[in-house]
Each structure stands twice: as structure tokens, then as C-alpha cells.
Design a protein around this nucleic acid. Structure first.
Length: 775
RNA sequence: GGGCUCAUAGCUCAGUUGGUUAGAGCGUCACAUUGACAUUGUGGAGGUCAGAGGUUCGAGUCCUCUUGAGCCCACCA
């Protein structure tokens, strides 16, 4: 039954594919909408299309699957729903790299063609990775798999946008954003990393004052100088204007007083560059300063920089130094070490600048989420994440939802083509950012919110929505929910345009309108959701806000944050560090079940684990040996059972637990085994404990408990002692073994199915067995 | 700077609401074993539970402080 498939194209050694196919074909993974059973629903966090599966995913999937299988055995109608995320920037970068190899580019293809190719590429990527997503044995309802760009989610996302828009929660405006010049898009705080850099601190003469800066090239965007209001040194200068030499002409600048200035830093004077610094932007807003754009979206200086225009930031900085020196503006420089924000994905330096972006006002949404969290409707594991999330929600700032990408849900806003807007204005009024529906030059812009074109003469907004805008809606959109009519779906009928290679048939939301309503009614809210802690703000907080806002309900009842697996130095696994451990390596070496077991020992909520290849090998080996042990137990109990014609074994095979308990008591005097009662008691104690641990989602404890029972009680003691009295105890042996397999099935699904099939009296699959409710 | 977490055997870690003699796996030492066993079994060594103080009849567990390690968030002109 065990296969030894070559490890390529999604086939793995040590993954018994026949068993998996048998399960899937038999429909054991499918939720049954019409079932009388109580439902239990689990939402699989959609993996990124491009991301290969790493240990974290393997652990996440193992946990999800154990819970799902446990609940199935307990008699629930389980929905374990898989999905895929289009992963905006990440996919787009991967795809563009792929295109570059074929000497193609966005520019050459144009948007429409590019998207067409992107969807093809997506299908290919999906094909090559989808089998890996099953390799942990995930018992997911694949027929219901959803992709974030499918028609259903697409409509739900649109309605989300429209609702916000109609309620005045969406606005568009010039705003300071973190801009990645390489990805050519605004990115969020959470998408940045910090890198320590050794740079220089330059002391520059600004009129009568001297100030320190690491970024002299932003000089061209300065609109003021600032000092701390209490700084005695500069009281006389506050409010006065001075003429400053900028290297691109002279201009007048005011000195403002602002408490954001640190009097201890440098000279206690700063230059204010509201267009290219977050703190300066805030100062600018407080003092109503104009904003100048000195750096454009490619990271080059604008015409404001005079002869330095067109240069990249670092180049300009270098070239400016001699002139600054020569003109006596640069007084001195010091070495300075500080952290610089870089783009998490491409590692280029992030450039704060002013850009026209879409925002969602999240205050009200956050309030809703806070109240529902405070009502303890969601069980957080670990508990303290509740507080952490609430704190973050209290200090939340508006959510920039637009991205200058092509891959994603395009912003469903249309403008009349006659009023084509000028892009990249070099100045903005800082206050228009707060007004709804972008006012520019005092004129209210005409626009329509619509998924399809409103007709001739309208052009759609160029940007797409932040990936998390759709991810945040995931608990709803996966179940075919849509805004307009609440839980009653109004998805279009089957004839959804087969546009862009999305397989409409794979997405039930486009095919079974009515069924989808029932899906939402039945399976929402989700019983279980799992996530890495690092996306608790990006994703988890937003799912709660959005779900609460649109349905008045929590998205999930239990939120399980697993820990992060790190290397022995405590660092995250990452491609750039090259410290990753491929789960496929472990599976090939120790088998999928053993790998799962190894990962369960790290599945404690909120607890990080430090691992190395050696450590995981050790655990893999340990549980491989455990699997061997069970295989041998089964060999002994079933294959080497005493002659089946013997009277005792024939008459007792279908015996029940109670009969065995009472029937055996009197007969033990000459038997070396102390008592069957002992092993049966131990068994029911184990069942009780394992059940409790599983209910509490303490998988590591459940695993430990089973391990202890199987190896040290059942095998080492009971089986050893049974050898002298084999015929008599055969029914007990079989009974205990079967119970052990059922107990272990959530954790080691393949092995337990394989061994279960050896029983003469059995069901079609171990998945149809019942979890013993022994008290 | 704000928040959070951790420190238990050589290593990686368990240890539910405080309650006998602090556990597991691997490693290590001794012995046994071709056995249902890709070896496995039996037994041993190894811990001042980071340190100090406190609450308590009782603290690895609760409180305070110290030290060390790490993570998240913000700021870094």
C-alpha cells in the first residue's frame, strides 16, 4: 500500500497517494450541506499563489487537518475549505521576472494582454504547486476551492468597496505614503523591513541656523524649518522667515515651533520636508505648510532640483556634497548609523512621498471589532492576543487600499474620459487629503462606482485594491456571501464571463447561487481559523472588522495563532537567509505521518520553536520509529493472530467492550496478565484525556498522551504479557488496536488508514469510524 | 521609546486553574535481546526550574525587581 513515488511534479516519496486518492474519490472530504449533523467549519488561510510551501504551512495544514479529522470522527459535518490568494505584489513581481526572461514586459504587452498572460501563468503555477498543498494529507473540500480573483469573491469585493464608498468611508487624496520605487507602488508599514545602514549626518547651514540631516537631497522639498517650542536657543527665530540657498535658487522659509522636534538631536533644528517624511508631513499639516514633491515615483529628483533633476536619490546626494561644501553650506559631517525602511519583498529603500491614493476610514470598523472582541465572542489562542489586537485597533490609522499594480481587483471607479486627469502634480494642498471624493482645484471630480464600464466615454481607475482588501473579506466571500442583500446571494447565474482563464466551474459561487446562500447560512461563522501571528494585524484584525461591519457577526469562533518556527538563532526562516528547511525533505526521509507528528510537537499556540534540520530529523526519526512500532503491533495482532478456527477467537470477535469487561474478571487467576481491565481502563483514560486535549486544541499534549499509551502501556506491557495467553486476549488486543488507530487518525491519517484496512470487521474507511465517547 | 514573549537535563522542548519524588524525545552509560520490532527492551547518570525578594501551610507555576535572549509596533530629521 505504501508507495515510493519519485519526488517530482508533486509526487512524494513516503506519501501514500493511493490512500489520498481513495479518500478524495469516496467523497469523505466533502461537506454535506444537507447533512443532519451539526456543522464544524474550518477556513484554510489561502496560501500565496507563488509561495512554495514552507515548514510553517506544513504545520498549519497539519493542525487544521487534525482538528478537521477529529471533528469528523466525532460526527460533525466538517467543512475544511481551501483557497488561493492572488497575492498582489508578490505574484506580479514573480510574473514580471518570468516575462523579462522572455524579453517581454508590461510596456510591451499592455494591460489587457498582460492580464491574459498573467492568468495563464497563474494556472501553470497553480498546477505545479497545488499537489504540494495536499501533501500533508489535508482533508480539504477541494471541490469548493476558491481563488480570490474568482467571480464570487470579485463581486463581494466590489460590493464591499461600494458600501464603503456609499457610506462615505472611502476617500481619495494626496497622502504621504511609503513608496517602493522598484515595485512602483505604495506599500504599508507592515510590508516594510528595517535595515541598519551606516550613513553620514550632514550639518547644513540654513540661513542663520545650522541643522543636521541624513538626507540633503530632500532639501529641494523643504518648506520650513522647525525647532522645539521650549528650546531656549531658538526662541528669537520662531515665526520669522529667512532666505535659504537651495542649490536651485534661493527661497524664503519660515521657522515653526513644533514639539515633535527633538532638541537633543543634532542642533535641535530640523528642516521640514512634508512631501518626503512622515514626521515632517505631520508637522506640515499642523502648520499648514505647502508640500513640494522633490522626488518622483521612480526615486529620481524632480525639476525642483534644478541641475540635479533626474538623478537617483543616492547619486544626487553624492553629487551635491562638493557644491554644498564649496558654497559653505555643508559645515561638517559625522558618521551615523540608523535603520532605513526597505521593501519587504524587493529590499529597495522605501521612499516616503506624496501620492494620490484611496483610503478607507477605519475608525468605525475598528470600534465594531473592538466591542465584539471585548465581548469575548472569539476565543483567542493564546489568550493574550485578544489584548494585543484591541490595542492595535484602538490606534489604527486609515487604511491605504490602492496599489499601483495590475494584478488584483481593479478599483471599480470610472471617470469620464474627457476629464482625463493629470498625473503627478508636483504640488498638493495638504488639506484636500481629508475630504471625501477628491476635490482638486476646487472642482469635484466626477466619478462612478461600478464593476463594469458605465458606457462609452468612461475610463477605469488604473490602480488595484490592496490584496488584504479581498483577504479581509475571505471568511464571507468564500461562502458566496454578498453585501447588497445580506446573506441572500445575488450572484449572477452560470454565464459568468470565462474571462481571464478563471475556471468558472471550479467555483461553486458562480454555478450554484441558491446553494451558496445555504452555504453561508450553514457554515458561517467559521468554527476555527488559524494563522501565523505575524499577520494578525494585516489579516486577522481586518477579517474581524469587516465581518462585524457587514454581518454583525464574528468571522470565526476560535482563532488559533500558531508559533513561528525559527532557526537556532531565533531568526525567521527566509529565502534570503537561506536557512529554510523544506518539509518535502522531511517527508521524503521520514514519511508524511511522522513529519506531521514532529510538527505537532511545535503546535503550541503563540509559542515559537527553534529548529534545525538535525532537530527535525531527530523528531522525524522518533516518530518514524513510532510508526514502525504501530505497524509491528498491527502485524503481531492481526497478521500473527492465533488460528482463527479456534473456538475462543471465533466466538469473541464481535464482542463489545462491556462484555469483555465483565466476562474476563473471574478468569484471571492462572493468567500472567494482571487483568484486561487494566489495559481497558488505561485505554479509556487515554481516550478521555486525548479528547480533552483535542477539544482544548492542545495537540502536542494529545500526541504525547497517545504515544505514551501505545508504546509504553500497550506494547511494552500489555502485549508483552499477553504472549503467554494469546488466544484469550486476542479480542482485547484487536479492540485496543482499533481504538488506538482511531485515536491516532487525526494525526497520522495515512498509516492509520492503511492498518485499519487489515481488520476483518470494519467500515470502508477509518474516516467513517466513530470517536469513542468513553467517559 | 511603547507593547509582548521567553529563560526548566548536554540539545530541542512539555509541565491545564499553585499540591506527592519536576517529565518527554534525542544524546549519554550499563546490561539484555534476532525478538511482533527499519532494532527493541530493562535499568542508570544528568536539574538550586536564570538570579533576588515577596504572597502562601505549600511556588517551576502567582506578585515585584534584576540580568540575559528574542519578537512586534513606532521613531530615527
Amino acid at each position: 500500500m505504501k508507495s515510493n513515488l519519485k519526488n517530482k511534479k508533486g509526487n512524494f516519496k513516503n506519501v501514500p497517494k493511493e490512500i489520498y486518492d481513495f479518500w478524495e474519490k469516496s467523497g469523505f472530504f466533502s461537506a454535506d450541506l444537507k447533512s443532519e449533523k451539526e456543522k464544524y467549519s474550518l477556513l484554510i488561510p489561502p496560501p500565496n499563489l507563488t509561495g512554495e510551501l514552507h515548514l510553517g504551512h506544513a504545520m498549519q495544514h497539519s493542525i487544521l487537518d487534525a482538528v478537521a479529522r477529529f471533528k469528523r470522527l466525532q460526527g460533525f459535518d466538517v467543512l475544511l475549505l481551501p483557497g488561493v490568494d492572488h497575492a498582489g505584489i508578490q505574484f506580479e513581481a514573480t510574473f514580471d521576472k518570468f516575462l523579462a526572461k522572455k524579453n517581454l514586459s508590461k510596456r510591451k504587452l499592455g494591460r489587457e494582454k498582460w492580464l491574459e498572460e498573467a492568468f495563464k501563468f497563474k494556472d501553470e503555477v497553480y498546477k505545479s504547486v497545488s499537489s504540494t498543498w495536499r501533501f500533508m494529507g489535508l482533508s480539504a473540500d477541494w471541490k469548493r476551492e476558491v481563488f480570490t480573483l474568482d467571480e464570487g469573491p470579485k463581486l463581494a469585493v466590489f460590493e464591499q468597496f461600494k458600501t464603503y464608498y456609499d457610506k462615505g468611508l472611502i476617500y481619495k487624496g494626496p497622502y504621504i505614503v511609503q513608496w517602493c520605487p522598484k515595485c512602483n507602488t505604495a506599500i504599508e508599514d507592515v510590508e516594510m523591513e528595517y535595515e541598519e545602514r551606516k550613513e553620514k549626518l550632514y550639518y547644513l547651514k540654513y540661513g542663520p541656523l545650522t541643522l543636521a540631516t541624513v538626507r540633503p537631497e530632500t532639501k529641494f522639498g523643504d518648506t520650513a524649518m522647525a525647532v522645539h517650542p521650549d528650546d531656549k536657543r531658538y526662541q528669537d527665530y520662531i515665526g520669522k522667515e529667512f532666505e535659504i540657498e537651495t542649490l536651485a535658487g534661493r527661497k524664503k522659509m519660515k521657522v515653526v515651533a513644533d514639539s515633535a522636534v527633538d532638541p537633543e538631536f543634532g542642533t535641535g533644528v530640523i528642516k521640514v520636508t512634508p512631501g518626503h517624511d512622515f514626521a515632517d508631513y505631520e508637522i506640515g499639516r499642523r502648520h499648514n505648510l505647502p508640500i513640494l514633491q522633490a522626488i518622483n515615483k521612480e526615486g529620481r529628483l524632480t525639476e525642483l532640483a534644478g541641475k540635479y533633476a533626474g538623478m537617483k536619490v543616492l547619486e544626487a546626494r553624492e553629487k551635491m556634497i562638493p557644491e554644498l561644501k564649496q558654497k559653505g553650506i555643508l559645515l561638517k559631517q559625522e558618521n551615523y548609523v540608523h535603520n532605513v525602511a526597505v521593501c519587504e519583498r524587493c529590499k529597495s529603500t522605501v521612499e516616503p512621498l506624496i501620492s494620490e491614493e484611496w483610503f478607507v476610514k477605519v475608525n468605525d470598523l475598528a470600534k465594531g471589532a473592538i466591542s465584539v472582541i471585548n465581548l469575548d465572542k472569539i476565543k483567542f489562542l493564546p489568550k493574550n492576543y485578544k489584548k494585543i489586537l484591541v490595542e492595535w485597533l484602538k490606534n489604527i490609522h486609515d487604511w491605504c487600499i490602492s496599489r499601483s499594480l495590475w494584478w488584483g481587483h481593479r478599483i471599480p471607479v470610472w471617470y469620464p474620459s474627457t476629464s482625463l486627469r493629470i498625473s503627478d502634480p508636483s504640488t498638493h494642498s495638504i488639506n484636500s487629503g481629508s475630504s471625501t471624493r477628491s476635490a482638486r482645484s476646487g472642482r469635484v471630480e466626477e466619478m462612478k462606482v461600478s464593476l463594469e464600464s458605465p458606457g462609452e466615454g468612461w475610463v477605469q481607475d488604473e490602480q488595484v485594491l490592496d490584496t488584504w482588501f479581498s483577504s479581509g473579506l475571505w471568511p464571507l466571500s468564500t461562502l458566496g456571501w454578498s453585501v447588497g442583500t445580506g446573506p441572500v446571494s445575488r450572484f449572477p447565474p452560470v454565464s459568468a464571463p470565462p474571462q481571464s482563464g478563471v475556471r468558472a466551474d471550479r467555483n461553486p459561487s458562480t454555478t450554484a447561487t441558491r446553494a451558496e446562500n445555504l452555504m453561508f447560512k450553514r457554515y458561517f461563522p467559521w468554527d476555527f481559523e488559524i494563522s501565523a501571528p505575524e499577520i494578525k494585524y494585516l489579516w486577522i484584525a481586518r477579517m474581524i472588522m469587516i465581518s462585524q461591519y457587514f454581518t454583525g457577526q464574528i468571522p470565526f469562533k476560535t482563532m488559533f495563532f500558531h508559533g513561528m518556527l525559527r532557526d537556532l538563532l531565533g531568526r525567521k526562516f527566509s529565502k534570503s537567509l537561506g536557512n529554510g528547511i523544506d518539509p518535502v525533505y522531511l517527508i521524503d526521509k521520514w514519511g508524511v505521518d511522522a513529519t506531521r507528528m514532529a510538527l505537532y510537537t511545535y503546535s503550541i499556540p503563540g509559542r515559537d520553536g527553534r529548529v534545525s534540520r538535525e532537530i527535525l530529523d531527530e523528531r522525524g526519526k522518533n516518530f518514524r520509529n513510532f510508526a514502525t512500532k504501530i505497524r509491528n503491533i498491527t502485524h503481531f495482532v492481526i497478521d500473527l493472530k492465533p488460528d482463527s478456527n479456534s473456538e475462543v477467537s471465533r466466538q469473541t470477535r464481535p464482542i463489545t467492550l462491556d462484555v469483555m469487561k465483565s466476562g474476563r474478571q473471574e478468569n484471571t487467576s492462572e493468567v500472567s496478565i494482571a487483568d484486561d481491565k487494566w489495559i481497558l481502563d488505561e485505554l479509556s483514560k487515554t481516550i478521555r484525556t486525548v479528547t480533552k486535549h483535542l477539544e482544548n486544541l492542545e495537540l502536542h499534549l494529545a500526541v504525547e498522551e497517545i504515544y505514551e499509551f501505545v508504546w509504553h502501556k500497550f506494547a511494552d506491557r500489555y502485549i508483552e504479557e499477553s504472549k503467554s495467553n494469546r488466544v484469550k486476549v486476542q479480542p482485547t488486543l484487536e479492540h485496543v488496536l482499533k481504538q488506538v488507530l482511531i485515536l491516532l487518525h487525526p494525526f497520522m491519517p495515512f498509516l492509520t488508514e492503511e492498518l485499519y484496512q487489515k481488520f476483518e470487521v470494519k467500515r470502508e474507511s477509518i474516516m467513517q469510524e466513530e470517536w469513542s465517547s468513553s467517559r
